[in-house]
Amino acid sequence: MTWPPLREELRGIEPYGAPQLDVPVQLNVNENPYGPSLACAADIATAVAGAATTLNRYPDREFVELRTALAAYLSTDTPHGVTAEQVWAANGSNEVMLQLLQAFGGPGRVALSFAPTYSMYPEYARDTVTEWVLGRRESDFSLDLARARDLVKERQPSVVLLPSPNNPTGTALPPEAVATLCEAAQDGIVVVDEAYGEFRRTGVPSAVELLPEHRNLVVSRTMSKAFAAAGLRLGYLAADPAICDAIRVVRLPYHLSAVTQAAALAALRHAPELLGKVDELRAERDASVDWLRTRGLQVADSDANFALFGTFADRHAVWQGLLDRGVLIRETGPDGWLRVSIGTADEMMAFKQALTEVLEEEAP
């Protein structure tokens, strides 16, 4: 037997991860470029110091206080409100998704999404021995609802994964698309991944509003993006309480540390400040999309804090040209496309200058 005795389907696979390079302008992993204020950081430090005095004890495994605070925050997105019993959290939305696949996927079951989609989804399916089925989006990255519904009815997935805004394209789903697929997937759950939900454009609703109408709907969020807390690793979801109860079966004991709970609660107390740059980033995104289009490039409509643009005969050469000029973006998405995270005004100016030079260099 080959050593180590790894599962055969995992042999030769590289671990997931974007390049982490020390360059002046890092616009490749959709981070919020604005960190917490000194006052917010001090409050988090005080909260963590308090938790440190009780580290000899296990944390609250039901993290009731945190779930209550997250429910209050989510309730601002729906007139129906959200209760603590409808909320679950884990170490980043990645662990939330993995727990959902552990609970509702598995051998003999199907997880389904529509390409292009988040590149980690098939890995969650693989890791839980769940069959992975991939439909296709249209050329503008929207969903043909009739075709999508037919695929769901044909394959009867136990989990449907719908990022909205979509990663890597930035496009959001209309409420009717979510409702249609929830009705089609009666024997499974439909997960609307709103990791970038706070960046959606005015008038684009959150799927949280649809929770009372669909017991199989799950809406996931993260504190990594709009909350400027990627280093905190806190993701969460809202769903029917029965779904939260089911996740308890597969969660690891005391999976959220006392330190994580304390830091997340402190960050939520500073939500207005941490979310204060969202409008500025939206404006910078829209301006960047317009600028890219003036350069003759295709750009996907974006409700996220990034823009997908192209197309290039050799996208790697463009990516490398930007990197050579100290600007790191992401080589991801369909062939020929690149994705840039929205940074500060200065960072976006550096990106535009570098891309202008690369395009002029690449021009025939």
Rank of each mutant, 00 (worst) to 15 (best):
E209A: 11
V110W: 05
G108E: 03
E138T: 12
E131S: 06
S158E: 01
G197L: 03
R136T: 12
S220Y: 02
N167I: 15
P107R: 13
T180A: 11
E194S: 15
T169W: 04
L210I: 12
Y118H: 12
T117H: 15
G170S: 04
A177C: 12
V190E: 10
R136K: 15
L145W: 01
L143R: 11
P168Q: 15
L173V: 15
A111P: 13
A115Q: 10
P205G: 15
V159W: 03
R221T: 00
P168I: 11
P116R: 06
V192A: 04
V190H: 08
A207P: 13
A125Q: 00
I189E: 02
R221P: 04
G108D: 01
M120A: 11
R221Y: 08
L211Y: 06
V133M: 14
V160Q: 02
E209L: 15
S220Q: 00
L161D: 09
S220W: 02
Y118C: 12
A172S: 11
G188L: 07
L181H: 05
S164L: 07
S119T: 15
P107I: 09
A146Y: 15
P212G: 13
S142M: 04
E183V: 14
A177M: 07
E123K: 03
V178H: 00
G188H: 04
G197I: 06
E154P: 03
S164Q: 10
D150L: 13
E213T: 14
A125K: 01
R149I: 03
Y118T: 14
D140E: 11
F114D: 06
V208R: 01
S220H: 00
A185I: 05
A184C: 06
T117L: 14
R147S: 14
A172G: 06
R109I: 06
F199R: 04
R147N: 08
S139V: 09
V133G: 05
A115S: 11
F141E: 09
A179C: 11
P122V: 06
F199C: 06
Y196M: 10
T128S: 01
V152N: 03
V204F: 11
L173Y: 11
G170M: 03
V178Q: 02
S220I: 00
D150G: 12
Q156G: 10
T169E: 03
S220T: 14
G106A: 03
V191M: 12
D150V: 15
L210R: 05
G188M: 05
P122G: 07
T202K: 10
V219W: 03
D144R: 09
L181P: 01
E123C: 01
P205D: 09
A111W: 13
R137S: 04
